[in-house]
Design a protein around this nucleic acid. Structure first.
Length: 564
DNA sequence: TGTCACGGTGAGTCCACTGA
DNA sequence: TCAGTGGACTCACCGTGACA
């Protein structure tokens, strides 16, 4: 595509393709630089305004990839004279860029009182409702202790009096019924106002955001960390691998499946390189192998239904499912006294499927199923001593269950996943998408800023999410995980090898083992007969008990203002 | 039951690099 | 040139498990 030949209106529908974004930036910058040049050679404001007016048709269209106008750019570099003359020349004053910032909020962030006062006096909107997805002008002014706080408050008060007066003549009908949670009502913008910003990010983000929100509830109280499903899936995989590691997983991936890239370190560094995919694939292959071994042992056992039982079930129901399932459960119950059997069955029946459930819920955009997995995570994290993961997941649960149920309900409605192409089963976790398609543009947008100013400027605006969704609507943008083509044999061979190993080790044969024995891996040597750490045995039950004891202190630590 | 080793966490520090 | 960033590293603290 020859983007240079496209007009502004032709370019915008293609927003998101890198070269088009570059072209938008290039054109906007060129126009802005021209205007600065004009300003530098025009000493007299009146002349400058006349010359700017002559170029109005040109600059009025200019929006870069973040939807910034020349007025935003003038405010950004603190060019007060150009900003004033642009306004006099007819530049629209209340245009919001992709993250909801106006020239006024940028000037306030820059502590440029002269520009801020001028913009307010020229009609810049100061009311909070206009900045529903970002920090309002008054909050910014208070934060920076700008001299114009008083001026702003007076202005807001004056406008409010006018609005109140006008509203007497146009009374709004407000029903007296309690809040109705139906979709239409929740979707209605007025019921949300500026209730909550869910800042999607990683561990560091959680700590930072909740720290800011607790320290300055008046300003940052509307922010809460939204731990992403992509990250949490990594934590869950790590947890499951560690629970199953000593009892065989580490040994099997190293010596049976022979996957050198999967080990305790790869799970620790789960977001590096291709570790995420390798780890998860190994975990699933391990589970499949164990499942095959388990089924074969069941088949050999006395619990396996007889031919006549199978035939009778087939006659009644048209299939063998009922009798197979009930006998399978009986077989598992009868062998629960064997520590090894119990340990491996827990992994196959409970823990690894949790990760699969999570993955599929994300891919199919099932928000309720995702939340159900979240509810089961903290006890596992508590049990393996990952207090940071535990706190993160608890914060998430408290937020969606009690603190911000309405806002989180909104999230459920959008299935808390991103579906760019509309392909069934291909959704992305919000943070999975954020990492690749938001963090980078955010850094680009706010380069040269401090962490605090980035947080203030961006406020993780939902406007930006919507903007970016449009920006990356192209097919190539969807290709997030550039996985290498498999050059190793298909997983089935590995699964069969795992099954063979599990059968040889008699993991699913009730032999009354009192403990689960450790398997050697890596550099670790065993003295012989060493038992798996008790942390990994009955992890869920123990974790649940631990969590109950820790929960109150967690609430006081992470939600001090709510617990007062 | 007390002691010790170990591992995880989080605060703090250092330093190379970047961009204004 | 200098302020700010972010990764690598250190260290104190704490909880857990092994062992005497």
């Amino acid at each position: 595509m020859q983007v240079e030949r496209l007009s502004w209106s032709e370019l915008v529908p293609h927003i998101g393709i890198e070269e088009v974004n570059d072209e938008l930036d290039k054109r906007t910058t060129r126009i802005f630089d021209d205007l600065r040049q004009v300003a530098s050679v025009c000493n007299e404001d009146g002349t400058l305004i006349v010359r700017l007016k002559a170029r109005k048709n040109e600059f009025i269209l200019a929006r870069d990839q973040y939807l910034r106008t020349v007025l935003h750019l003038a405010a950004g570099i603190g060019h007060t004279r150009l900003l004033k003359c642009l306004v006099h020349a007819g530049a629209p004053i209340n245009v919001r860029d992709g993250i909801g910032q106006t020239a006024l909020t940028i000037s306030l962030h820059k502590n440029n009182d002269a520009a801020s006062v001028f913009l307010i006096e020229s009609g810049a909107c100061v009311q909070e409702y206009y900045y529903e997805n970002t920090v309002s002008p008054l909050a910014i002014a208070k934060l920076h202790k700008n001299d114009i706080v008083e001026f702003l408050e007076k202005r807001i008060g004056d406008e409010k009096r006018v609005l109140d007066h006008v509203s007497k003549f146009f009374p709004k009908k407000i029903s007296g019924s309690p809040v109705d949670m139906n979709v239409d009502h929740v979707n209605h913008k007025e019921n949300f106002s500026r209730a909550l910003n869910i800042n999607i990010g990683d561990q560091k983000n959680t700590v930072t955001v909740i720290g800011c929100a607790n320290a300055c509830p008046d300003i940052y109280g509307c922010h809460t960390p939204g731990t992403g499903d992509f990250h949490n899936r990594g934590y869950l995989n790590e947890t499951v691998a560690r629970i199953g590691g000593q009892g065989g997983f580490w040994h099997v991936v190293e010596n049976v499946m022979k996957r050198p890239t999967v080990n305790p370190t790869s799970f620790k560094q789960k977001f590096k390189d291709n570790n995420y995919n390798n780890n998860e694939e190994a975990l699933y292959d391990y589970e499949d192998g164990l499942s095959i071994a388990m089924i074969k042992e069941f088949e050999k056992s006395s619990f396996f239904p007889s031919k006549s039982d199978l035939a009778s079930c087939l006659l009644k129901t048209g299939n063998h499912n009922n009798v197979l399932l009930s006998k399978f459960k009986e077989w598992q119950e009868s062998s629960k006294g064997d520590a090894i059997f119990n340990y491996q069955v827990n992994l196959v029946n409970d823990l690894i499927p949790l990760s699969r459930w999570y993955k599929e819920s994300i891919r199919n955009g099932n928000g309720h199923a995702i939340e159900a997995v979240w509810m089961l995570c903290p006890e596992l994290y508590a049990q393996i001593g990952k207090t940071n993961y535990r706190d993160e997941s608890l914060i998430h649960i408290v937020n969606f269950a009690t603190k911000w149920p309405l806002a989180y309900r909104k999230l459920f409605q959008r299935n808390r996943t991103v579906n760019i192409e509309g392909i069934q089963g291909k959704q992305l976790a919000d943070d999975e998408w954020v990492e690749d398609h938001l963090v980078y543009p955010v850094k680009k947008y706010a380069k040269g800023q401090t962490s605090f100013s980035v947080l203030e400027m961006m406020s993780c605006s939902s406007n930006l999410l919507e903007l970016d969704r449009k920006m990356y609507k192209s097919r190539e943008a969807f290709n997030i995980h550039r996985t290498r083509r498999h050059c190793t044999p298909p997983s089935l061979y590995d699964q069969l090898k795992v099954a063979q190993f599990a059968s040889k080790e008699e993991w699913f044969v009730d032999k009354g083992h009192p403990v689960v024995y450790k398997y050697a891996w890596g550099e670790n040597t065993l003295k012989g007969g060493e038992a798996v750490s008790s942390r990994s045995i009955d992890a869920r039950t123990k974790g649940k008990e631990k969590l109950q004891l820790e929960f109150l202190s967690f609430l006081h630590r992470k939600f001090p203002n709510e617990m007062k």
